[in-house]
Simulated assay, not measured.
Amino acid sequence: MKRFWAVFQARNLEFFRDRASLGWNLLFPVLLLAGFSFIFSGDGRPAYKIGILNQGQALTQVQSPIEQAFRATKHIEFVDYGSEEKALRKLDQHGIDLLISYPTKQYWLNTESPQGYLAEKIFLGSHQNFTRLETNSAGVRYVDWVLPGILAMNMMFSSLFGVGYVIVRYRKNSVLKRLKATPLSAFEFVSAQLASRLFIVMFMSSVVYTGCNFFFDFYMQGSYLDLFIVGAMGAICLISLGLLVASKSKSEELTGGLLNMTSWPMMLLSGVWFSLEGAPQALKTFADFLPLTHLVTGARKVITEGASLADISYHLGILALMSAVFLGLGAWLFDWHTERK
C-alpha cells in the first residue's frame, strides 16, 4: 500500500503542477458548453428542414393562414429558394427533407430520405390538394451523402492526433534534442513528418473506401482521381495543423486538449453529419475558416455532383493557403527541447 500510495501521490502532484494541462482540463468543458449553447440556442437543432420554392416572389403577397401556421411549426427549419434547379439538387443530396411550391400547389419528395417521409406526413396533416412529385434523378442515398464526411472526419483524427502525440512524445523522450545535433533542419523534419503521415492517411482512406464500396456500391458522379486529389489536399492541411499545434507543447495532456479543441468544432460545423443549409450566416462564416469544411464540401461535390477540380478550385485554393500558413508557422515555432521556459 505504501508503494501504491507513493505512485498515486506522485502522479497527482505531477498533474496538478502542470499548470497548462490543469488549466485546460478546467477550461475545455466550459468552452464546449458555451459553444453548444451558442450553436444550438433557442429550440435546438431543427428535426426537419423544408425548402420553400419561389418564396422571394411570394413575400410580396399575403401568405395564407395555412402557410403562416405551417411556418410557425416548431422544430422545422424553412429555407427559401429562388431557383428550382438548386432546390431540387439540395433535395437529392439530403440538404433538405421536403420542397414545397405554394404558387403551383406542388411538393417534391426524395424517396430515399427517411426524414423526407416523416416531413411529408407532417406537411399533409395541414395541406390538401397538393400534387406530389418525386425527384427525377436516381437519388443520392444518405450513406452516399454522408460518406465524404465520415472519411474526412477519420482523416482529420488520424492527421491531428497521429502527428501531435508523436511530436510531443519525441520531445519528452529527448529524441528531438538529439536530432537537433544533426544537420536536420526544423523545416526538413516537419516536412518529413507531413509526407509520412500523408502516405499513411491516404493509403488507409483508400483501403477503407475501396472495401466499403464493395459492399455499399457508393454513388459516384465524378472522377476518382479528382476525389483522391481533394483528399490529399485536405490531409496535407490537417496534418500541417496538427504539426502547428504540437510545435511547442511539452505536455501530452495539453496537446490532447488543444487537439480536441481543434477537432470538435470541425466535426460539428463542417457538414459532416448534416447540411448547414439555412444555418445562420455567422455560423456559415465561421465554418468557412475550418479546413474540414472545404475538404467535405469539395469531396461531396465530386461524388454527388460530378464536379471537376476547376469547379471546386475555391475550396482547393483555401486548403492550399491554409496548408502553407500552418506548415510555415509550425516550422518557425518548432521547439526541439523538452525544458519548459
Rank of each mutant, 00 (worst) to 15 (best):
T182Y: 11
Y209I: 10
Q115Y: 14
I303L: 12
F289M: 10
K248H: 12
Q61L: 04
G149I: 09
A119C: 08
V163M: 11
V143S: 13
P280V: 08
D92P: 00
Y165Q: 06
Q57K: 09
A186G: 02
W264F: 15
N129D: 14
G139L: 07
G51R: 13
D217F: 12
S174N: 11
F130C: 07
R11E: 09
C237F: 13
I167M: 07
E134S: 07
H127N: 14
F216L: 14
L27I: 01
S206W: 12
Q63V: 01
F228M: 07
S206C: 02
I167A: 06
F334V: 02
A34I: 09
P280S: 09
L160W: 14
W108K: 02
L259F: 05
K90M: 10
L243F: 04
A119N: 10
A138L: 09
F334L: 01
A299G: 05
T104Y: 13
W5H: 04
P46R: 06
S251M: 09
L27A: 13
T304N: 15
Q9Y: 13
D311A: 10
D92S: 12
S313V: 11
K341D: 04
I236T: 02
G56L: 05
L316F: 12
Q106S: 11
L292R: 08
T304M: 13
L53F: 12
A87D: 04
F4P: 00
Q128A: 12
L91M: 10
A186D: 01
N54I: 01
V163S: 15
D226K: 00
T304L: 15
P65E: 04
F40M: 01
S137A: 05
L99W: 12
N173M: 04
I312S: 09
F334T: 02
A186Y: 07
L194E: 07
M155D: 13
G125Y: 08
L33S: 08
L321V: 15
M261D: 08
A87S: 08
R197T: 01
A186P: 00
H75Q: 15
I39P: 00
F28P: 00
V201D: 15
G306Y: 07
R178M: 03
Y219E: 02
S323I: 05
L333A: 13
L176E: 10
A186T: 01
G116T: 02
D97P: 02
T104I: 04
S323P: 01
R178V: 01
A192S: 14
M202V: 13
D288C: 00
S64R: 12
V230Q: 06
V168R: 03
V230M: 11
G56V: 03
G306W: 09
W108F: 11
Y81I: 11
S64W: 12
S137H: 05
S275M: 02
I229Q: 10
F130E: 08
G298Q: 06
A307C: 08
L31K: 09
V140N: 06
I229D: 11
F274S: 03
R340Y: 06
G234R: 05
A181H: 13
V201G: 06
L99F: 12
V208D: 06
L151K: 04
F157S: 07
P65C: 03
F15V: 12
W336S: 09
M156A: 10
N54D: 13
P29I: 05
W273D: 03
M322R: 10
E77Q: 14
A331L: 01
I52R: 15
T73Y: 11
M267S: 14
L259D: 01
F123D: 06
L198K: 06
